[in-house]
Design a protein around this nucleic acid. Structure first.
Length: 467
RNA sequence: GUCCCGUUCGUCUAGAGGCCUAGGACACCGGAUUUUCAUUCCGGCAACACGGGUUCGACUCCCGUACGGGAUACCA
């Protein structure tokens, strides 16, 4: 059996995490079964369409490493084909022209509401004689939905779902302006593109019954379905901007690594026993539809952050520096020069183990790239207050050494603490930290002094004394 | 309103009738390590929505209730 899955975003200008997860699942399902994963842009709504919007989608796919097969299909470009199918259904008596005016429709809607009914169109043109059609109204094409009986779909996540056909309207497949509706386009495209498995959001479950009518009318094979539970914000409402971030590009801007988002989104709604950290290759090997959860999941930034910390720790050094570069500029208006980069790399193990996001990594390593005189934050200034004796002692001591090492710097601090700070290391190490970094939070200051080197360290101490 | 779907620790989840004294992860709270903040390591708190069945036995199956979500367009 062949497997073809699809990702059919409408170009909205960014990639929502919900869409990203759908894309990940489709990608994995295809890769897990040696099938194809194709992309189709649902751009029939020309008002919303733009090249930048398409680029944003592709950018999101690329960032997440979801490589697709073949060319991207544009739904808009296939308009003629969709129209042709609608006409074909008319010819076969499976669809019909409906000449209702907006006013008539509104009236029916009103009536249905009063009756508490789900559907409103009374099928008045279904069997009417086209001879009687009003000449001043451009008709739409409606499908002849089954009138009685039941329709059941077997969903890989939701199981068997049955709906009484009375609930299914004769919905519109071709608008009065001759353009196809989503319901038609999606079915025709899925069929023509040979899609075998449709994994999409739960919000489409109800549409599936309508789409099945079209597949059946055309005598086409109905694909397999898997409707994924939706992603909610912490408050249980639909996940959106106000929950912190909603597009993958926002997560990127906030300093998350793609593999972290990938892993997090994969685990949201899908599981493999107790496994939490799942590599892409394991995911491809393990992914299946059986262990997709049925309930909507709340997005938890803390867990994402935890995974992000893990992946930063595992990240290749060169790649990490590269990823961080833009953030040094953005957050501190600094572009680390070669010397700075070498220092950062020398201290990268500690830096990595501390950072939960690229923002933190950059903020905690930027002192390596700063130039004298450093600016001191509030706490650092307070720490430096009255510490001149200690700073001077430190400087004198360092100047007497050939080179600074983590060990000899620590020893120096220890000795000075014993001499003039009641033996309290903190009284010596903290001013040193403030002098070297401009802050009160940093990795090991002994190691930092070694990395900065004797000259730079002494200059920074002098600058702190001169402040 | 109507139709459809869902409901295990705060969160993501494991669980396919006895393996469950309900497991893991994140978060949280302690403690150890530490010059700060983190990391790391130990330990702790914490859940089967409710009510009826079925069964020797139910988190697991059935029905109902409650709550939550989705769909109800000439949007996708």
């Amino acid at each position: 059996m062949s497997f073809v899955t699809r990702f059919p975003p409408s170009p909205t200008g960014f990639m929502h995490v919900g869409n990203a997860r759908t894309a990940i699942f489709n990608y994995l399902y295809a890769r897990a079964n040696k099938g194809k994963f194709v992309v189709r842009i649902e751009d029939t709504d020309r008002k919303r369409h733009s090249e930048e919007a398409v680029a944003a989608i592709l950018d999101g796919l690329q960032w997440l490493g979801l490589d697709y097969d073949g060319e991207i299909t544009s739904q808009f470009a296939r308009l003629d084909r969709h129209t042709e199918i609608a006409k074909e259904m008319i010819a076969k008596g499976q669809a019909y022209y409906c000449y209702c005016s907006p006013a008539e429709l509104e009236e029916m809607r009103e009536k249905a509401r009063a009756e508490g009914s789900n559907l409103f169109y009374d099928r008045r043109w279904r069997d009417a004689d086209p001879e009687n059609s009003p000449k001043d109204i451009k008709p739409v094409i409606r499908i002849k939905a089954p009138i009685d009986g039941k329709t059941t779909i077997t969903d890989h996540v939701q199981g068997e779902v049955t709906v009484s056909n009375e609930q299914l309207d004769d919905f519109i497949i071709l608008r009065s302006d001759g353009t196809p509706t989503y319901m038609l386009s999606v079915v025709v495209d899925d069929h023509d593109m040979g899609i075998t498995h449709i994994l999409r959001g739960d919000d489409h479950l109800n549409n599936t019954f309508r789409q099945k009518i079209i597949f059946d009318a055309m005598g086409w094979d109905v694909p397999e379905f898997a409707h994924l539970p939706l992603i909610h914000g912490a408050d249980g409402a639909k996940f959106s901007k106000r929950h912190g971030a909603q597009s993958v590009q926002e997560f990127r801007e906030q300093g998350y690594l793609p593999e972290a988002l990938f892993n997090y989104l994969l685990r949201l709604g899908w599981s493999h026993g107790d496994d939490e950290v799942i590599s892409r290759s394991d995911a491809i090997q393990w992914f299946n539809l059986n262990t997709i959860g049925k309930a909507a999941a709340k997005f938890d930034f803390a867990k994402l952050e935890n995974l992000n910390a893990h992946y930063i720790n595992e990240c290749d050094n060169d790649r990490l520096i590269k990823l961080a570069t833009a953030f040094y500029q953005e957050r501190h208006a600094i572009t680390p020069d070669e010397i700075a980069v070498n220092r950062i790399i020398a201290g990268i193990d500690e830096l990595k183990s501390r950072a939960k996001t690229l923002h933190q990594f950059v903020d905690e390593s930027v002192f390596y790239a700063k130039k004298i005189p450093l600016s001191f934050d509030e706490k650092a200034s307070a720490t430096l207050e009255g510490a001149n004796d200690i700073l001077s002692a430190l400087k004198t001591r360092f100047e007497a050494l050939d080179t600074l090492t983590s060990d000899n710097v620590q020893q120096a601090c220890k000795d000075i603490a014993a001499d003039i700070a009641d033996g309290k290391m903190g009284k010596v190490a903290m001013p040193l930290r403030a002098a070297l970094t401009g802050t009160t939070v940093s990795p090991s200051i002994f190691h930092a002094a070694e990395i900065l080197g004797k000259d730079e360290t002494c200059m920074r101490i002098q600058a702190a004394l001169n402040r």
